[in-house]
């Protein structure tokens, strides 16, 4: 029995694997990388597009000499700090503004004006105030993420059924209890969307901050590489940025999936 040639069933299952989407993805990826490697240096100058082999070598070099450790860690740190700070500010503010018509009318327009500002132009001002390094990048990351968290949570809180705020009052809940036990849970999907958008934009803000006001981070790395006309390094840095972005997206998908929240919940971006 041992050593038989594959029967019909085994051939079928191998065939199924070969026909699966995963196999097709690997094939497509291999074809693109292969074409890229082939064209580079032969038909398109390596200066413009570098090559997969060079990029891979560069990444391995960076892994060995601590470049990845240093810059990726900085970027992750900046992103997380920016996100946490933004949420810590935005959620209480959203609670306050949505609860009071007066505060909403007074502060609303200012918040909206600030939201409309392109964040990148804040770079020079932040350097003035905070110097060059992690701080201005964290500030920029925080500012960018803030509005995403704020507006999503604000909208979510405004759509909470009035009966819940009334119940909270009649049961003698303090404002904190009302927020934690009634209002924020009632705005659940919006809070989840706000936080996930906040994290994504904290990363975007971190990139802008690193490219305008920092001396560490993958954003800085790409700027630095570009200024030295090192296209391989630029591509390699792009790969790293792409991987971080992908990691964030997958993390959010997984967390939101665990919470059972609809991914298509109303988002403001």
């Amino acid at each position: 029995m041992a050593g038989r040639a594959p029967g019909r069933e085994e051939r079928g299952s191998i065939g199924r694997i070969l026909r699966s989407p995963g196999a097709h993805r690997i094939l497509a990826f291999a074809l693109i990388i292969g074409a890229w490697q082939f064209l580079s240096g032969r038909y398109i100058s390596a200066y413009f597009i570098s090559s997969p082999s060079d990029i891979a070598t560069k990444i391995v070099t960076w892994a060995r000499d601590g470049t990845i450790a240093r810059h990726v860690t900085s970027t992750v740190l900046i992103t997380i700090c920016g996100f946490v700070l933004a949420s810590a500010l935005a959620i209480p503010l959203a609670l306050w503004v949505s609860a009071s018509k007066l505060v909403d009318a007074v502060l609303g327009p200012f918040i909206y004006a600030a939201y409309s500002m392109p964040k990148i132009v804040l770079g020079p001002a932040l350097v003035l105030w905070l110097g060059i390094g992690l701080l201005p990048a964290i500030a920029l990351s925080c500012i960018t993420a803030f509005f995403l968290v704020f507006y999503n949570v604000y909208v979510g809180l405004k759509q909470v059924a009035p009966i819940h705020t009334i119940s909270a009052k009649l049961l003698g809940a303090t404002p904190l209890q009302a927020a934690m036990k009634f209002r924020l849970p009632a705005a659940g999907p919006f809070v989840a969307t706000g936080l996930s958008q906040g994290l994504i934009y904290a990363f975007h803000g971190a990139m802008v901050g690193e490219m305008t006001a920092s001396n560490v981070g993958v954003g800085y790395l790409i700027l630095f590489s570009g200024s030295r006309l090192d296209s391989t390094a630029v591509m390699a840095a792009l790969v790293l940025i792409g991987l971080i972005a992908l990691a964030i997206t997958l993390l959010l998908d997984h967390t939101l999936g665990l919470l059972g929240t609809a991914k298509g919940a109303q988002a403001i971006a």
């Binding site: 059924a161 009966i163 819940h164 009334i166 119940s167 009649l170 003698g172 009634f182 849970p185």
Partner: peptide, 13 residues
């Protein structure tokens, strides 16, 4: 807060 309030609407969380 000394009175219980029951409405037609569902106040359950």
């Amino acid at each position: 807060t000394s009175a219980g309030y029951l409405t037609q609407e569902d106040a359950l969380l």
